[in-house]
């Protein structure tokens, strides 16, 4: 049972990051390579507040969200906007942005991973015969709520519709009164804020280290690819699949094989069903 919970907890984390990728893809047409690094920054915000009690929970999250939103803004301004015209250049700049953030974190915090305790959430508790951390449950709730929320935002609101239109045809969208640049910027800021908030939780669950972003990147990308590009519910499905796979592989075969199995899963999914299980067949942007 504990393995199950471990898998679901990881899955929730990957699902959330996959959702963040989806925001960029569906609302702005950009794969934001740097979003896991924003999550890492959120983790360090958590680190700076380490040992805090539940009372200042809102403060921690507000600071993290703020930092994340600002980073999202900067990424859009510096990495995405100048390269948007060039087509292929954006691949380079978003990779660059990711490593600027990672490099800065390395300089400031060094190579080690820092354990973070916050709000007492690193406590274990029993559920249905298995043990899990409080923070895992929180992450799961956050994952479901945020994915549902973003889904509604994208499909049912004017803002979401405008973002989707702007991704498909920015010029026509502008002629319908859509401020394409503002919409894209807002999408990046939203994703950044959410990323940093989740980062605080990830710090408690895993730790705060400069490489956190990169280590989450690959698993989350598999979740994204499995679940489907353009589908928010798919992110949840993909995350759960990858999380469970990792947990069970680590438990029964060996931790070092988890990554290899995830890679195999990625290859199989890409070969058999490129747009993922629930993905939009027509959104072949990735």
């Amino acid at each position: 049972m504990t393995v199950l919970w471990a898998g679901l907890a990881l899955g929730a984390l990957y699902a959330t990051v996959a959702m963040l990728f989806n925001i960029g893809m569906a609302q702005a047409g950009v794969f934001n390579f740097a979003i896991p690094q924003v999550l890492m920054v959120g983790a360090f915000v958590g680190y700076e507040f380490a040992g805090a009690s539940l009372a200042i929970l809102p403060v921690v999250f507000v600071v993290a969200a703020g930092a994340g939103a600002i980073l999202g803004l900067l990424i859009e301004l510096v990495a995405v906007r100048p390269a948007a015209r060039g087509g292929h250049g954006i691949l380079i700049t978003t990779v660059g942005a990711a490593f600027v953030i990672e490099g800065a974190a390395f300089i400031k915090y060094g190579v080690g991973g820092h354990n973070v305790t916050l709000f007492g959430w690193d406590r274990l508790f029993d559920l249905l015969g298995g043990r899990l951390f409080v923070v895992d449950a929180v992450i799961a709730v956050v994952a479901v709520v945020s994915i549902a929320g973003v889904y509604v935002l994208s499909r049912r609101t004017r803002w979401g519709l405008e973002g989707r239109a702007a991704t498909l045809d920015p010029e026509s969208a502008a002629l319908r009164g859509v401020n394409v640049t503002a919409n894209r910027l807002q999408a990046f800021m939203l994703a950044g804020a959410l990323a940093a908030v989740v980062g605080v939780l990830a710090a408690v669950k895993i730790n705060a280290s400069y490489g956190l972003g990169t280590s989450l990147l690959v698993y989350s990308f598999v979740a994204f690819a499995v679940g489907g590009i353009g589908s928010y519910p798919g992110c949840l499905v993909g995350g759960v699949v990858v999380g469970l796979l990792q947990a069970y592989t680590a438990r029964y075969i060996g931790a070092e094989y988890a990554l290899m199995i995830a890679f195999l899963l990625l290859l199989i999914v890409l070969l058999a069903r490129p747009t993922g299980l629930l993905g939009n067949r027509q959104l072949r942007i990735v």
Binding site: M260, L267, L270, L271, R284
Partner: peptide, 28 residues
Amino acid sequence: LPGLRLSKWSLGLTSFFLIMLLPGVVVA
């Protein structure tokens, strides 16, 4: 091969995976 029906990013991330896999494979 896997990313053939997709474009741009799929090759990038699939190949990036290899770098992450390297230590594990070397150990194995």
